[in-house]
Write a protein that binds this DNA or RNA. Sequence first.
DNA 1: CATGAATGAGTCTTCATTCAT
DNA 2: GATGAATGAAGACTCATTCAT
Lengths: 230, 230, 230, 230
Amino acid sequence: MKKASLSRSHSEAAGQVPARPRKTPVQARSTATVLAICEATIQVLLERGASRLTTTHVSQRAGVSVGTLYQYFPNKKALLHEVLRQHLTVITEAVERACAASHGYSVEQMARAIALAFIDAKLHDAKRSVALYSVADFAEGRTIMEKLRKRATRALVTMLQTAPGVEFHDPETTVLVLYSAMAGAARSVLEAGAGPRLVESCRRELVLLAEGHLTRACQARTVQARVAGD
Amino acid sequence: MKKASLSRSHSEAAGQVPARPRKTPVQARSTATVLAICEATIQVLLERGASRLTTTHVSQRAGVSVGTLYQYFPNKKALLHEVLRQHLTVITEAVERACAASHGYSVEQMARAIALAFIDAKLHDAKRSVALYSVADFAEGRTIMEKLRKRATRALVTMLQTAPGVEFHDPETTVLVLYSAMAGAARSVLEAGAGPRLVESCRRELVLLAEGHLTRACQARTVQARVAGD
Amino acid sequence: MKKASLSRSHSEAAGQVPARPRKTPVQARSTATVLAICEATIQVLLERGASRLTTTHVSQRAGVSVGTLYQYFPNKKALLHEVLRQHLTVITEAVERACAASHGYSVEQMARAIALAFIDAKLHDAKRSVALYSVADFAEGRTIMEKLRKRATRALVTMLQTAPGVEFHDPETTVLVLYSAMAGAARSVLEAGAGPRLVESCRRELVLLAEGHLTRACQARTVQARVAGD
Amino acid sequence: MKKASLSRSHSEAAGQVPARPRKTPVQARSTATVLAICEATIQVLLERGASRLTTTHVSQRAGVSVGTLYQYFPNKKALLHEVLRQHLTVITEAVERACAASHGYSVEQMARAIALAFIDAKLHDAKRSVALYSVADFAEGRTIMEKLRKRATRALVTMLQTAPGVEFHDPETTVLVLYSAMAGAARSVLEAGAGPRLVESCRRELVLLAEGHLTRACQARTVQARVAGD
DNA sequence: CATGAATGAGTCTTCATTCAT
DNA sequence: GATGAATGAAGACTCATTCAT
């Protein structure tokens, strides 16, 4: 069999697939190999950028032969895809968790929660984040980003609608702009390779940005709504 | 033919720079060639992306031979450099002008002015913007972005310090975060190929973001600075 | 596992070879595997052609691992060899039988007998025939073809010499040309994937070709040979 | 550069394209290069067979770089295509000429004319013929062969219908079988690398085959036709 | 100066074959 | 014996860059 168990998120995936208790020794080796390859990809990306990443480099760095790499990924594009998807999934899920946990809170609290969730997820996976900025142009990178951005924005919009006493004129746009703004800011900071001090400043500043934006973008609930609340 | 009407108006469009009496008749020809090459680069970038742009494609599209291209640009990297630099310069100058024009105004007015200046410059040069997003990974693209971001940031900080009655705790960070946030938001909108309606919504939203952020990031000036609140 | 519909009937189908009591129970398993591999080879050949046949494909199709394939065949070349040899042997033996059965008959009857024997053997093994046309270039395919062609032509020449009342000026050449002509015609028909109607026409036409050729290529036996012409 | 012994047939080709007077110096160089590549292809084909022909080999043998090869042929397949097409075109045209020249002659004369035209064309281009037998499996080789066989077949059928006093029951089939039979016979002889003596025998034998086949495959024209002839 | 044919190092990808389990 | 993961040499094809015309 070939790429069966490729769907990375191995651990996660496992968590969702009920009856797949343990991998046989054979699969265990494969899994380790796949992980090594993904990890090597990140490293090569950091050192040389996507435009100068070669499958040979990656496989050497991973300590396997090119042939092995191609046993698990049909082509270079698929490899970059996978690595990008993994990273964005982590970030997206962090944001989703923050959204779920903030339902019903004030707009300020929401803003702070998601800003911190976002930036902290990025910082936690900082190496990956930076490495992958250069991948977007390749391999339909944007398609993946788009898909996961949608997931995140859906969670955000849903959350905003639970904010008490206010309403948003155009929550979709608000959320799209805020999310991509945070992404842009995070990118600058991460790419600049900022030290811990600057990182901390930016983290705080991002909270201000989110709070400022969201409080500006909403208004006290209108009469008929308010009456109803009454 | 396709791309006939190359709106080369950009540089001219600025038009604020009074007299620029350079280039002799001889140079005029060269200049036209260089312009054609730069324009062709943008087009190829849009059609194939940076990772599949070749010097041959560019020269064909520009209607010259590869040899000619190499007469004006030492290598591919320099070409991409130049095109990126041109675009970012236009944006940066628009922001600088907005900053200069907003000295002494209220924070809200500043926010609105620069947000609009930024997004409108991007929208005006939309094709170029989109085309160049894929270039960052190449040719030290980030270096150039960094350099011009610094110029813009300097102008912004200077402006903020003229805001009456308030002061910013850490204007550098505020400005860095705001600027890259706006860039991130603009990128999303442009890459999504949004229609005029969505573009307009985002434009407005970006103003809210800037206003929200800046008003949150400042505080009434402390006593010793000026009790003169009155 | 796969192993599915391997119509291994071929060798058995011939059935003319009376008793061949080889292979112990143990060998039976191996034999089945070898058959499956050969059959899979034909299928892969039909689907992808010799130039895109891989040992992996073959082994998968045969329902065994590559390793097993290499247990029975030292390399890919040997595998193709074997399959080609098998097929040509079947054809050759059919021709040999027809020759043996036609000794002493008239030239026309000989012609008809061998033409039909040849084309019917090809048609019976049609899939294999078609599949193997693409193999000739590989693995010294021509060497094998040459060897078996020699066997067939020997039988043909021997037969011709028993034709009553006539003699052939240069039976070796006659037979070489006729045999390869029939092979060429058969190939066209088979590769064209002709329907039963066209096949039947061609079958008849091939008889005409053989009859015409042989009757033209011989002459009434000369006097000293046998005044008995009368 | 090398450019070795470029077998002429090119000039022929030119002779058919009316309005292309002279190549510019530039094209002249290109043309020479293309010729050298085609010639090198034949040589490599003869030495290593289609399955072991590499574009690197071909370009080296042609005395140019791989890049140059790819400047003129989009891929390996196209190269083989072209060489195959050229050869088959020469053969086909020879047969067409023989057909055109034999209209109205007796069936025997037709048979002899086309058999000789065919075999002599093959012998004249013997190296090419042999080299290209291994190409059929690649690059839709059969498609090209099919196309040109159709052209030849059409000419043959048309010719047969002008034979006086006889008619063919199923001229299409007769012609298909005869043509592919001649091809098969020619192939054997050429691949065997026969010496001039054997070649000459085969040549004569092929005439016998054609004469025998065609005279067998036709019958005296039926009454109403015969009356007319009367 | 312009041209575009030629170059060849560099990439991706395949696949026959081996060998540890 | 069977397995199939791993290997890595080999081959198709690309493209930045040069240079003779």
